[in-house]
Design a protein around this nucleic acid. Structure first.
Length: 289
DNA sequence: CGTCCAGGTCTAC
DNA sequence: GGTAGACCTGGACGC
């Protein structure tokens, strides 16, 4: 397969980007959820483009993210895919202030080698829906729900129009989403009609408070979900506090117990990168080395 | 077989 | 603004 394009592994501030250390916070970016150990070699990701599903392979070569596909692309599609990959790796984010901040840090200095690109989905819509599928259930249930969604979409995550047109029965009996089904369908309907524009949350001009407010207004998205989606949007202030991160923090920090307010205070020194610092602190052992 | 709860959120006080 | 209770589902666990 010939390369489609090569995106330099550099962030918005010219800082290094480690392909192997670009991981997603949850199973949210991949379908099916890829494992972290696959990342250093290649990242496969089915992508919907021009009304069909294209299998995209991304890997690191000579300091760049190289994309390939066996599919025949039409005019303009290569550029579209390039934009999508740039968004997924959040290559325009400038993490250099964060790297400067952790340079002398005992627990996070390692991150300055290019970690912290939390892989996002091709669309904010996909990230939001998948995040809802992580709430109040075991991880196995999240995988089941996202697998069902991918299957409905013919291999890639379905578009809002398709989800809006899917009967409740499917949500209940096939995806087995329980009460989440109504949330997913409602959001999909609003996106499909155009009354809700989740992709607008990608705009840099929006401030964090406005993005957070818009996310919290969505059914099924609360403080946890908003913090999670915001990390995927490159807005790193909020800590993702849930039933996995809380005990993991206690285990790694050696604290017997820690209230949310205490954890927040412990990471407040990272300022607008507090949420990213927290996440990297928790997931260091997910990464190679 | 019943209870609990998992990478929470919503509603009703 | 803060806090119980309910909520789909299905695996884990105790009895």
């Amino acid at each position: 397969m010939k390369p489609l394009f090569a995106l330099p592994l550099r962030g918005g501030g010219g800082e290094p980007v480690s392909f192997a250390r670009s991981v997603y916070s949850h199973g949210c970016a991949g379908l099916p959820p890829a494992t972290i150990t696959e990342m250093p070699l290649a990242y496969r990701r089915p992508l919907r483009i021009g009304g069909r599903v294209v299998d995209l392979v991304l890997q690191e070569e000579d300091g760049a993210i190289v994309a390939r596909t066996a599919a025949k692309l039409r005019r303009g599609e290569r550029e579209k895919i390039e934009k999508i990959v740039e968004r997924m790796f959040r290559l325009r984010d400038d993490l250099s202030p964060f790297y400067a901040r952790v340079a002398g840090d005992e627990s996070l200095a390692w991150a300055a080698a290019g970690a912290g690109r939390i892989l996002a989905s091709p669309s904010v819509f996909e990230d939001v829906i998948k995040t809802i599928c992580t709430t109040n259930c075991a991880w196995s249930a999240t995988e089941r729900m996202t697998r069902a969604l991918a299957e409905l979409g013919g291999g890639a995550f379905p578009e809002a129009v398709a989800l809006a047109a899917t009967p409740e029965r499917w949500y209940r009996e096939t995806a087995r989403m329980g009460y989440r089904g109504a949330y997913v369908k409602a959001i999909s309907q609003n996106v499909a009609t155009g009354s809700l524009d989740l992709e607008a949350l990608l705009e840099d001009r929006m401030d964090d408070a406005a993005v957070e407010e818009a996310l919290l207004a969505l059914p099924g998205i609360g403080p946890y979900g908003a913090a999670h989606v915001m990390l995927l949007l490159g807005r790193h202030r909020h800590l993702v506090l849930d039933s996995w991160t809380r005990p993991t923090y206690r285990r790694l920090s050696g604290k017997r117990q820690a209230a949310d307010s205490t954890i927040r205070r412990a990471f407040s020194r990272y300022g607008r990168y507090a949420g990213l610092a927290f996440w990297l602190f928790l997931t260091r052992n997910w990464l190679p080395e």
